[in-house]
Design a protein around this nucleic acid. Structure first.
Length: 267
DNA sequence: AAGGCAGCCTGTAAGC
DNA sequence: TGCTTACAGGCTGCCT
């Protein structure tokens, strides 16, 4: 499940892979995967890549002709370089053709992923309202206090709300709350400033560690060379039956998602 | 406004 | 053995 560290890993690798290369074309094999902006009357390809950025879990690839490719990997989407796997892999939904017959396949079992082609100026029409980037300096105590004011929802739900913090998903929300020793059911606005500061610090630590380990490969997430990340080996609570201190882990549902927590360590 | 939840989608695994 | 059911969750849209 690609969350911020996985998307950042892919972005870093795409940057290396696509630098100075030209995209010759995009083939699409699944009607709901590709969204083509109405103002885009002709194909934007061939085009060179002038820059990449990440907004939350969205990848933006800016092209020379003032067009942009927006990619969201959904649940099971991955971008994989051609020379590592078969020519038409199973569940291939689209394929970027590069110069010198190189390819980058977009493979997505559950088809929640999307690729948007649009003029750069139209990007906002395709991005939902996104909150602060958790690794930026803007993610600080005063921001979080303001954002949580009057919010009675459980802190776990708030961490996963992209309008408040952009990029966290279920796995990292679980890990962050365990390491910050906060019970996921705690009403968000009831947390003291000391605990919020701890939460912010822990969020940054966990995300940076996960990026360093190239993300978490629990099921489908893979790097651009189709290899796994390593952070799944460092998870302390997600899908565990006992916590690192040996206490039994509780599994509950919050917002339709699985929450794992330790009632002893997390108060 | 905030919050809860169904629905989308397919592979895997458990249950009968 | 083979069928049915539950589960995994990012996001949208609907309802209260």
């Amino acid at each position: 499940m690609p969350e911020l560290p996985e998307v950042q890993t892919i972005l870093n690798e795409l940057e290396k892979e696509l630098k100075d290369k030209q995209i010759e074309g995009l083939d699409c094999y699944h009607s709901r995967t590709l969204i083509w902006d109405k103002e885009l009357t002709a194909t934007p390809f061939p085009a060179k890549i002038i820059g990449l950025e990440r907004h939350g879990k969205f990848i933006l690839i800016h092209l020379t002709n003032e067009n942009t490719i927006i990619i969201h990997l959904g649940m099971t989407g991955k971008l994989v370089r051609d020379n590592t796997i078969a020519n038409h892999p199973k569940h291939e939904r689209a394929c970027f053709r590069l110069s010198e017959k190189e390819k980058i396949h977009f493979i997505d079992i559950r088809t929640f992923g999307k690729i948007v082609l649009c003029p750069t100026k139209n990007i906002p029409a395709y991005l939902p309202e996104l909150g602060v980037e958790p690794l930026s300096e803007d993610f600080n105590l005063s921001y979080l206090q303001k954002a949580l004011k009057g919010r009675k929802a459980p802190i776990k739900n708030i961490l996963m709300d992209q309008k408040i913090i952009a990029g966290l998903g279920n796995i990292y929300a679980n890990e962050i709350l365990y390491r910050a020793k906060i019970n996921p059911e705690t009403p968000a606005s009831s947390l003291s400033s000391q605990r919020l500061s701890k939460l912010i610090k822990t969020t940054k630590t966990v995300l940076n560690e996960a990026i360093e380990k190239n993300g978490t490969s629990i099921s489908d997430y893979r790097r651009i060379d189709d290899k796994k990340g390593e952070f799944q080996n460092f998870l302390q609570i997600y899908q565990k039956t006992s916590c690192p201190k040996g206490h039994p882990v509780q599994k509950i549902k919050q917002g339709g998602r699985s929450t794992y927590f330790c009632p002893v360590c997390q108060k």
